Amino acid sequence: MKFLKLLPIFLLLSFQGLAQPNGKDSSLVSRHRPGIFWFYTGFRPAKPGKLRKYDRLILDVTYNQLLSTGGGVKANPWRSFGCNVNTMWDVPLNNGNTFSLGIGFAYKYQKTGPKGLFFADSTNSFTHYFPDSSYSDYRKNTFGNHIIALPVELRFRTRKWEHFKVHLGGSIGYRLQTFQKLWPEKKHAEKYRDLPDQNRLVYGVHMRIGIRNWALFADYTLAPQFKSSKSDKISALAFGVSLSVF
């Protein structure tokens, strides 16, 4: 993915914000926009006393896992990475902006490499997961989702630019597409989007905990992957690293 190729550049540039320009007081560093648009306030430094806004563009790199009622779904870890892009409004709820509300829009790319396949039943009305079934016929396979969502979160942080932060939130969204991609032996990839009972409604909870523009991230999708009562109960768990670039 192009995003993953560009990630090292984002990570390298973000470290620029660790320095204090010209030895100035650390409480004023945010006026000089260190890192990748961190604390960006326009073409001029922020006015003294103006509340800083935080975490308005957040990139998550995630490791994804499918969970079922019988436990986790075995997967190839190297094919189970995804990403999220979050654009957020930071709404201060107190004078120091140590407590705020985050509201925004997110795109989620969830991908796993299960060691098994999803099949529709003979009536094409519900979906079953068969571990390792017919897997020998394929070199590899992936399963994933494209999702858009509206996240809302409560944000707690300490004062000054090198703050410690905790975000607790949830989201509700729409599953644009569920896909299963297979690579048969000596053939090109085949992509399937026709599983019969895809659950379009997506909702879940998430958390970030970190320092300044870095955080650890976890997201649990409460909504089942398939909506039929006869389908296997599959949900998604994601955890990884977040980088706030704006």
Rank of each mutant, 00 (worst) to 15 (best):
M1Y: 10
K2N: 11
L7V: 13
I9S: 11
I9D: 04
F10I: 01
F10W: 00
L11R: 02
L12F: 00
L12W: 00
L13N: 06
L18A: 13
L18T: 12
A19K: 07
A19C: 04
G23M: 07
K24F: 06
K24W: 06
S27K: 14
H32N: 14
F37D: 03
G42T: 01
R44H: 13
R44V: 08
P45W: 06
P48I: 08
R52S: 11
R52W: 13
K53M: 10
R56L: 02
L57M: 14
D60N: 14
Y63F: 15
S68E: 07
K74G: 05
N76V: 02
P77N: 08
R79N: 12
S80M: 05
N84R: 05
V85I: 13
T87Q: 11
T87F: 12
W89D: 04
D90A: 02
P92A: 08
P92E: 04
P92R: 06
T98Y: 02
G104R: 06
F105T: 04
A106H: 00
Y107G: 06
K108V: 06
Y109F: 12
Q110R: 12
Q110H: 13
K115T: 12
G116I: 05
G116N: 08
L117M: 13
F118L: 01
F119S: 12
S122N: 15
T123D: 11
T123G: 07
T127Q: 11
T127K: 09
Y129L: 09
D132T: 12
S133I: 13
S134K: 15
S134V: 13
S134A: 15
S136M: 12
D137V: 03
F143H: 04
G144N: 03
I147L: 09
A149I: 01
L150G: 07
P151R: 05
E153L: 08
R155M: 05
F156E: 01
F164V: 10
G169W: 01
I172G: 15
Y174S: 04
Y174P: 02
L176G: 11
Q177S: 15
W183S: 05
P184V: 08
P184I: 08
H188F: 14
H188S: 14
R193S: 11
Q198P: 07
R200C: 09
R200M: 00
V202L: 07
V202M: 09
H206I: 00
M207G: 07
M207D: 01
R208I: 03
G210T: 03
I211D: 03
R212H: 14
W214C: 00
L216N: 04
T221H: 09
L222W: 04
A223S: 15
P224N: 00
K230V: 12
K233E: 10
I234F: 03
S235Y: 00
A236W: 06
A238L: 02
A238K: 02
F239M: 10
G240Q: 08
V241A: 09
L243F: 01
V245C: 05
V245Q: 01
